[in-house]
Design a protein around this nucleic acid. Structure first.
Lengths: 227, 227
DNA sequence: AAATCACGAATTATCTATAATTATGAAGGA
DNA sequence: TCCTTCATAATTATAGATAATTCGTGATTT
């Protein structure tokens, strides 16, 4: 997720491609939290050896999508409400910082593109495309800050957010219109950076509550960042 | 640096030990920024194979201490003034967030320990021990926030900060007394979290300017975070 | 003559295959 | 029931093979 292209370029190393594929699966919720990732099996599936798989694991670990214990292997990172909140608050802090630096460099073209992304989000009929549009919006208004390390951290946090989002809204999903996104854009157009930052901070920390049908038919409470 | 113990436990995997050693060298400035890290050489030095070395590289990459290009190997991360500032601002944003959550859980014992760390910093006669004391101070007042992901990110940023610090003050060093640390502690003792956060934010962003004698005898400008 | 390009050797990164060390789980005995 | 012992599986590390990149050398062109 750190420098994502949609297609898997063959220029990338095998380890990178494997880690990207696994990251997608974890984020999409295809692999349950806590599941052991066995390098031999994964190596077999990708028709590769287990060395690149191990490197992919280190990558996932750095992203916070997997945790590894020294000689006991790696598992898909579990997440609880406390972790959802943690990610949300870190995103709020870092995205506000990024926006403050990006604001002076925001052009009309970028803001228009961001508005397009918002519309695309409103028009989307499934969670995945909504999440993609949402991510595009945030990226667009933050990228001009020109702080690569900060943007990389935010990307990782977005991946974690998306994981929570998909976990909560996997089965049922209703389209939402993004008032916050529009408010942020309006403030930015007026040159009111502080108002934009304040809205962004609140927006990211918005936590949705929804009952979700878990595997097994019974209902369980689920939570997700929705910003 | 993510879960650092001073001694290299043999419980850790080889890759972890190698990455720790390399991280220390990079932070201490023993390896110049931009230097290529050749896996065969490093493997030879550690009497190991190149596979654990590769894993160590992925670790360093995640910490921001090294950068790797697909089939061209990995180099020690370079740093410029812009990156120093970036790290400082990220630290300010994240440490303030951590302190805000830690404040309600701060005990007298912890604050006293933090004061001890400050005194140790004042008394230290070299940069390394000052940095260690400084890091201890920050860790002590932030750890009670109970947000592991946040603390891990802050640790990585501290490592980067230390790198800048050592680069600037490697040759000459004069002891400094930390008024800011005391101000933060005083505010926390009074229960004034906001004042503590404000001071912390300013404190971390303090950027020092100092001429430093570079290799080759000639002077060059150097910068460092000093908080 | 200087610069550019092409080619080839050497170095280096990447991956596969295999071995050894360590954890896990089951069976047997106190 | 609990502990020990042995068997199996999985992680970790090594050694060897392949493919890519870099760098030096020489030829060609401006």
């Amino acid at each position: 997720m750190r420098a994502q292209k949609e297609e898997t370029l063959k220029e990338d190393t095998l380890a990178v491609r494997i880690s990207r594929t696994l990251a997608e699966r974890i984020i999409a919720g295809e692999i349950e939290p806590g599941t052991r990732l066995r390098q031999d099996h994964i190596a077999g599936e990708f028709g590769a050896s287990h060395v690149p798989v191990r490197e992919a694991f280190r990558r996932l670990e750095a992203q916070g999508l997997a945790v590894s214990e020294p000689r006991k292997g790696v598992r898909v990172a579990s997440f609880e409400l406390s972790e959802v909140r943690e990610v949300a608050e870190m995103r709020a802090a870092l995205e506000v910082l990024a926006l403050r630096h990006a604001a002076p460099h925001l052009t009309h073209a970028v803001l228009d593109e961001a508005e397009e992304a918002t519309k695309a989000g409103d028009a989307s009929r499934d969670v995945r495309s909504w999440e993609a549009a949402n991510r595009r919006f945030h990226r667009l208004i933050l990228e001009p800050c020109g702080m690569p390390r900060l943007l990389a951290s935010i990307d990782d946090l977005h991946a974690a957010s998306a994981r929570f989002l998909f976990a909560a809204w996997r089965s049922d999903w209703e389209a939402r219109t993004d008032h916050d996104h529009r408010a942020i854009l309006a403030a930015l157009r007026k040159g009111d950076t502080e108002a934009a930052c304040a809205t962004l901070a609140r927006h990211v920390q918005w936590i949705g509550h929804r009952p979700v049908s878990a595997a097994g038919g019974r209902q369980r409470k689920a939570f997700a960042i929705v910003g």
